[in-house]
């Protein structure tokens, strides 16, 4: 008897999805280079890109807009990827990168740098301290989590770590006798890619890269976990190693991102939800598309903070939250049937 071969149902749409997202990302990055508070004609931008531009256009493009664009792509990418992986791992559609407490812990490091005035010494101290506290929070989380393999104990441990870091941030605002430092802390916490340089890229890029590799490593384990922990273990998955790689990957990747951008809400939560209907719904299928989708969404949000005319530049985290909620609600209403 001849068997009908399985239709490759997942493959062609996946290629198309990745292609479309890739085009969107290129478009968003191009737009991010074109738009800014100083309007530059596309011809001047192109000339600057080719190395033949006038000095002003060259500085604006290479020293301001390009690092900002690259950071937006990186930060959005790791937030989208980590959100997708954690939703798959925890089998919880509400999971997002901050669920492990790493974002808050990284923010605490940054706040400490601002509070004690360390960031005045060298601009790199703030992100480095943020990454350090993110890693410390990871160690605390692994310690709290013990040898457990359960999703619940990880969520509870993450809440404990995140709340502790959040309380310490509040304490710093509470005790700050310098209103400027308090203001600086508040502003930083709202998240921004303004005035970022290549220093920030050199700090964030290795973290994001390591994080992405570690998270993508276990994509088959995430699929296997659809059958529960015992089901996954019986399919040959080493749950302890999967958990450790995912924890380290998220802590380093998201910690590195938050260290340069501040906390940016909602990207890690909504992007996987937006991507999922266009895939076969398996956790592995949404990982790479969510990374690209996160990069697109964050870049678009960052363009909008630059072109929306307000007296102060809007903060990125504020915009992603405002953009995120309606998108999320519209999506939930459409998908309501799925989670019953």
């Amino acid at each position: 008897m001849t068997h009908p071969s399985l239709p490759q149902r997942s493959s062609p749409p996946r290629t198309i999805l990745l292609l479309l997202l890739g085009l969107l990302a290129i478009g968003a990055a191009g737009a991010s280079l074109l738009f800014g508070p100083v309007s530059l004609a596309p011809a001047r931008i192109m000339a600057a890109l080719m190395g033949q531009g006038d000095p002003i256009a060259t500085i604006i493009l290479w020293d301001l807009r390009l690092p900002r664009t690259l950071l937006g792509l990186m930060v959005g990418g790791i937030l989208g990827l980590a959100g997708a992986a954690l939703q798959g791992y925890l089998r919880n559609p509400l999971a997002e990168p901050s669920v492990l407490g790493t974002s808050n812990a990284a923010a605490l490091g940054a706040v400490a740098a601002l509070y004690f005035g360390l960031s005045e010494i060298h601009p790199a101290i703030l992100p480095l301290l943020a990454i350090t506290t993110a890693l410390l929070s990871l160690i605390l989380l692994v310690f709290l989590d013990g040898k457990s393999n359960s999703a619940l104990s990880l969520i509870l441990g993450g809440i404990a770590v995140g709340t502790l870091a959040g309380a310490a941030i509040s304490l710093s605002l509470n005790l700050s006798d310098n209103p400027f430092a308090a203001m600086e802390i508040m502003t930083w916490l709202m998240g921004s890619l303004e005035n970022r340089s290549y220093d920030h890229i050199f700090i964030a890029a290795p973290c994001v890269l390591i994080g992405m590799v570690l998270i993508l490593w276990d994509r088959k384990a995430l699929d296997a976990l659809t059958l529960g922990e015992d089901g996954a273990a019986s399919l040959g998955i080493n749950l302890a190693r999967t958990r450790l790689r995912l924890l380290i990957g998220t802590a380093i990747g998201v910690g590195g991102a938050v260290a340069v951008s501040g906390t940016i809400a909602f990207v890690g939560l909504i992007v996987p939800h937006l991507i999922r209907p266009f895939t076969d719904q398996s956790p592995s299928a949404i990982l790479v598309p969510s990374a690209i989708g996160g990069a697109v969404l964050l870049t678009l949000a960052d363009i909008s903070v630059r072109i929306i005319p307000t007296s102060n530049e809007l903060k990125l985290g504020v915009v992603t939250a405002f953009l995120g909620v309606p998108i999320f609600l519209a999506h939930l209403i459409r998908q309501r049937g799925m989670w019953q």
Binding site: L6, R9, S10, G88, R91, K220, D223, A224, L225, T226, L227, G228, D230, G231, S234, L235, G236, I237, D280, Q281, S282, P283, M338
Partner: peptide
Amino acid sequence: LAKTIAYLPQGQMLHWPLSVERLISLGRLP
């Protein structure tokens, strides 16, 4: 071990709304 013994756990909890074919393909993971 996964290639030697397959396991059908108790209960029917599925965490993601996969298609039947995609779900069965998880059996090939080992």
